[in-house]
């Protein structure tokens, strides 16, 4: 198994996902299965093949540098649980 239960817990924490301890073993197996497939594909010689960054064979379109967005603070902050003086309020972050 290429992914250990400890790694599953770490990845879940980094992604801020809450998972039930009973499920950890199963996730470890599932994820290992995926990585085993990747390991299998890694055996293919891809010398000279450019890595694919995007499934669409197109390049990025650019927009002109223009300010097009009006102030919509009131509308956008309607969804926020707490605001004050125009700021979004979140639980205290201590540095």
């Amino acid at each position: 198994m290429s992914i250990t239960p400890t790694e599953v817990m770490k990845i879940a924490h980094l992604a801020r996902m809450s998972i039930h301890p009973d499920d950890v073993e199963r996730y470890a197996q599932d994820l290992s299965g995926i990585l085993d497939l990747v390991a299998h594909m890694n055996q293919i010689d891809v010398q000279g093949v450019e890595p694919m960054a995007h499934p669409l064979d197109m390049s990025q379109r650019l927009r002109a540098d223009l300010v097009t967005e009006p102030n919509q603070r009131e509308l956008l902050q309607r969804h926020a649980p707490a605001v004050e003086n125009g700021l979004f309020l979140v639980p205290k972050v201590i540095e």
Binding site: R63, L66, V67, L87
Partner: peptide, 27 residues
């Protein structure tokens, strides 16, 4: 030194009232 943001049409001017230059993309 652009007028608008890298991925949206919001203004980048310094010193505006909080959150008046943040649109759906920026949020």
């Amino acid at each position: 030194a652009t007028k608008s943001k890298i991925f949206s049409g919001s203004s980048t001017a310094f010193g505006a009232e909080p959150n008046t230059q943040a649109n759906v993309v920026d949020l």
